[in-house]
Design a protein around this nucleic acid. Structure first.
Lengths: 206, 206
DNA sequence: GAGTGGGTAGACCGGTCGGTCTACCCCCGT
DNA sequence: ACGGGGGTAGACCGACCGGTCTACCCACTC
C-alpha cells in the first residue's frame, strides 16, 4: 500500500519544480510552468501535491535530505580525523557556489520570499542549526576551546561565502573563504602548528 | 524644473513600497496593496512610476543611497583613524540585523527573487563592490598586508552575519561576528598588539 | 482667468494565478 | 473479468496580477 511504484510522473514533477524553484524563485514560477516542463497534467500534479505549498515543502525536503546526506557522508568518511572532516565540509558545503554561476543556498533564497512561520523559514532554521551542531561536535572532538561559538562562526562564514559567491563575480572568493575557515578553527586549537597564543577568539565561553 | 514640490503622494508611495517590499518580498506584494496602504490612486502611482519594475528600482535606489551615506559618514567621522572606522563600519553595517527580528539585506533578498541581469542584481553587485572597495581603501591606509583579499573576506563575513542574523534565532551572533571581524583585520597588520607572526592569511597577493 | 501639473475616483483590459471538475484511459493484480 | 490507482485531456472557477482609460478636481502660476 501507499508508495508502490516510484511514480515516474511524481519524480518528473519534483525534479522540474526543484530546478525551476531554485533557478528562478518560488513566487516567480507558476503551476502552469511546472506541469508544462514536467510533461504532466494539472490533475496529476494536484493528486501528488494538494497545494503549491505542499510542492514547495517537498522541494525543500529533497534539498534538506541531500544536505544531510552530504554532511553525514563526510563525517563518516573522516570518522577518525575530525580536523580533516571540517576541511572537507568546507569544500562540500560550498560546492558549485563560487564563480557567480550558482544561485546560492535554496533555503536562504526561499526564506527571502516568505514571512513569519512559513515552512521555508522552518526548514532553513532546522538545517542550519543541525549543521552547526555537527560543526560543534567535530570541534569538541578536537578539544577546541570554544566549540559552540566557533561552530556558529563557521556557519556564519559559510553563509557569507555561499551568498557572496552567488552575487559577486569574484573568482578568488573560494580561497578567501577557505583560509578564513581554517583560521577560525585553528585559532582555538591547543597544540596548533601555526602557533597561535591564548584565546583571542574567546569573547565568551562554550 | 521638473521636481517642484516634494510631492507628498510620491513620498508616501516610496515609503510604503519600501516597507512592504522589504518586509514581505517583492513578488509577494502587488500594486493594489501599495496604493491601498499609501492612500493613493492607481493613476497617481503609475504617473510617478511607469511600471512596477521602476518602483522596485526606486526602492533599491533609496536603500542604496542610504547605505552609501552611512558608510561615507563613518569614514568621514573617523577620517584620521582608519582602524576605528573599520570597527565602526562593522557595527553600522549590521545595525538591527541581529536577534532574528530583521529581514536582512534588501539587496540579497531582492536578488533571490530575480534572475539574470535584473536591476536588483545589478544594484546588489554595485553596492557590494563599492563597499568592498571602501574596506580595501581603509586597509591600505593601515598598511595592511593583503588589503584586497581581506576586504573581500570582510564583505563575506558581513554578508554571512546579516543573513544568519535574519534566519537564526541566535542572540550571540553579534559577538561572534565582531570577534571574527577584528581577527581578520588584525591578522594582516604589522605591529599588532596581539602578536601574530608572518602572513597566515596571505594565500595570495594584493 | 486660462492653463497646467498633481491629485482623486473608478471602470476596464488581457493574462495569469492557484485550484477544481468531468470524463476517458490503461495497466496491473486478484 | 473486473476493480482501482495512476495517468491524460481540457474546460472551468474566482481572484488577482500589472497596466490603461476617461473624467473630474483643485491649487498655483503666468
Amino acid at each position: 500500500m501507499g508508495e508502490t511504484r516510484p511514480s515516474a510522473a511524481r519524480q518528473r514533477i519534483l525534479e522540474t519544480a526543484d530546478r525551476l524553484f531554485y533557478d528562478e524563485g518560488i513566487h516567480a514560477v507558476g503551476i502552469q510552468r511546472i506541469i508544462a516542463e514536467a510533461s504532466v497534467t494539472r490533475v496529476t500534479l494536484y493528486r501528488h501535491f494538494p497545494s503549491k505549498d505542499d510542492l514547495v515543502a517537498a522541494y525543500l525536503d529533497r534539498r534538506s535530505a541531500w544536505d544531510h546526506d552530504q554532511v553525514d557522508g563526510v563525517i563518516a568518511a573522516y570518522a577518525d580525523d575530525p580536523r580533516a572532516a571540517l576541511t572537507e565540509l568546507a569544500a562540500v558545503l560550498t560546492r558549485d557556489d563560487f564563480g557567480g554561476v550558482s544561485r546560492g543556498c535554496p533555503f536562504i533564497n526561499a526564506s527571502a520570499e516568505f514571512t513569519g512561520t512559513h515552512i521555508s523559514r522552518v526548514y532553513a532554521r532546522e538545517i542550519r542549526t543541525w549543521v552547526t551542531a555537527r560543526f560543534e561536535e567535530l570541534l569538541r572532538r578536537l578539544d577546541h576551546r570554544t566549540p559552540r561559538a566557533t561552530a556558529q562562526q563557521l556557519m556564519m562564514v559559510r553563509t557569507g561565502a555561499v551568498v557572496s559567491g552567488a552575487l559577486d563575480g569574484n573568482d578568488h572568493l573560494s580561497e578567501d573563504f577557505l583560509s578564513c575557515w581554517e583560521e577560525l578553527i585553528d585559532a582555538g586549537l591547543g597544540q596548533s602548528a601555526i602557533g597561535d597564543p591564548v584565546g583571542r577568539m574567546t569573547h565568551r565561553q562554550s
